[in-house]
């Protein structure tokens, strides 16, 4: 495991991994509302919520594997999520 240690055998990478797993679980809970939720607007806002959770997940993955390429992908996902939401609500 790379990265510094928090205390004992628990490193910071483990903390980032736990946060990433938490975000994935929250995304699946939001996906249930997106599939089941009545109306088109619940689905739009579920897509928006999952997209914003994906940004933090990408930044955490970039810190876990220590690859700075993921931050550019996270910025791209943020811009695409915003444009997609605006387009879906205007038309």
């Amino acid at each position: 495991m790379t990265g510094t240690e928090l205390f004992g055998t628990i490193g910071m990478v483990d903390v980032f991994l736990a946060m990433a797993i938490t975000i994935v679980i929250a995304s699946f809970v939001s996906l249930y509302r997106g599939i089941e939720g009545p109306g088109i607007f619940n689905r739009i806002i579920a897509v928006n919520v999952i997209g914003t959770k994906t940004i933090v997940l990408l930044v955490l993955i970039g810190f876990i594997y220590e690859r700075p390429d993921f931050f550019d992908i996270a910025l791209l996902y943020a811009i695409l999520n915003f444009i997609m939401t605006i387009a879906a609500t205007r038309y």
Partner: peptide
């Protein structure tokens, strides 16, 4: 340099997320 990228990401999210929420509510 990575922190500057994440700072831009935070600023963009603070601009874009309330805007998209307002757009969905208005629609």
């Amino acid at each position: 340099f990575v922190s500057v990228k994440i700072l831009f990401l935070i600023l963009f999210i603070l601009l874009a997320n309330p805007t998209s929420t307002h757009a969905i509510a208005k629609a």
